[in-house]
């Protein structure tokens, strides 16, 4: 209860500010209409009423977004092209595949960096450089190149999302695999342990808390990657496509509903990773 109260308070404040902003931003259209119809400008209470349920508001009100969210998830067939569940699943599947690829790549690169001096010196600068390229610039190129090779649909989006998610995993795992201190390494040296034994028995278990922290960042980045990957495909399916078609047709309510759906998916994915983290660390005896 003591944790819920502050959250609810903050939420209420945000919703109030949102309504105020909606009235302000949507008022221009009301005045415009009044001027065109050559009727006198409406008073304040009338104005508020006229800004609450516009069809193409500059800023949709919270209840408009909420209604749209419910309508497009619970209110229609999952297979419908307007269903956010359908579009959400398209995006989630690309996110999960990309996350899998990115995580695997990140872990393998980290293992390489730990064991190989040349990789240690060469991989990191490239990995950092790769993240300084704006993803919006590189995403269309990846799509075009793969398309010319006959690869379409899920894979290109997954690759873009892997491109974003490998980096936090790489950084976290390098740190985690290097976290055992000299004394622990010396102890294994007195047993004449091999590099492989040192890796499996000491480095990998030590890196687990670091791994999970970066997995949480990584899966959120994966989702961003999948959505960005949907933008240049011509808006066929996915949350990104909903955002794009919404902006083509000025459907601001649809855009905001898709945005909130994306945020909810992100929160759910991070929460699932967090749950697995808790379970794993508890089973390893590392969480009290």
């Amino acid at each position: 209860m003591s944790r819920i109260l502050p959250i609810v308070t903050v939420l209420l404040v945000i919703v109030c500010l949102w309504y105020v902003a909606a009235v302000k931003l949507n008022a221009a259209w009301v005045y415009d209409q009044a001027a065109r119809a050559e009727t006198p400008a409406p008073g304040f209470s009338e104005l508020v009423g006229l800004t609450m349920n516009q069809e193409r508001p500059v800023l949709p009100t919270p209840h408009q977004v909420g209604v749209e969210l419910v309508k497009s998830t619970l209110g229609m067939q999952v297979s419908s092209k307007k269903s956010l569940v359908y579009h959400g699943w398209v995006t989630i599947s690309a996110t999960l595949l990309g996350f899998l690829i990115g995580t695997t790549a990140g872990i393998l690169l980290a293992v390489g960096i730990i064991h190989n001096k040349a990789m240690d010196l060469s991989v990191m600068p490239w990995a950092i450089a790769s993240q300084t390229i704006p993803i919006l610039a590189i995403a269309p190129m990846i799509i075009v190149v793969l398309n010319s090779m006959g690869i379409q649909g899920l894979i290109p989006k997954a690759i873009i999302s892997a491109f974003l998610s490998f980096f936090p995993v790489l950084v976290g795992m390098v740190k985690g695999l290097r976290s055992p201190d000299q004394m622990q390494l010396d102890l294994l040296a007195t047993y004449s342990a091999s590099k492989a034994q040192t890796f499996w028995k000491l480095r990998l278990p030590s890196s687990m808390p670091y791994l999970f922290t970066s997995l949480k960042v990584g899966i959120a980045a994966s989702l961003v990657g999948a959505i960005v990957g949907e933008l240049p495909t011509g808006a066929v399916a996915g949350l990104g496509a909903r955002l794009l078609s919404g902006s083509y047709y000025g459907q601001t309510v649809q855009i905001w509903a898709a945005l909130f759906a994306a945020a909810l998916v992100a929160a759910a994915l991070v929460a699932i990773v967090g749950l697995i983290e808790k379970r794993t660390l508890k089973r390893m005896g590392m969480a009290r």
């Binding site: 004394m183 622990q184 010396d186 102890l187 007195t190 004449s192 390893m284 005896g285």
Partner: peptide, 20 residues
């Protein structure tokens, strides 16, 4: 060392927290 001639005890116990 390869013949397992000695055991070494460090100043800190250095037990692995994830092992019993």
């Amino acid at each position: 060392r390869r013949k397992r001639a000695y055991g070494y005890v460090f100043q800190a116990a250095g037990l692995y927290p994830w092992r019993t």
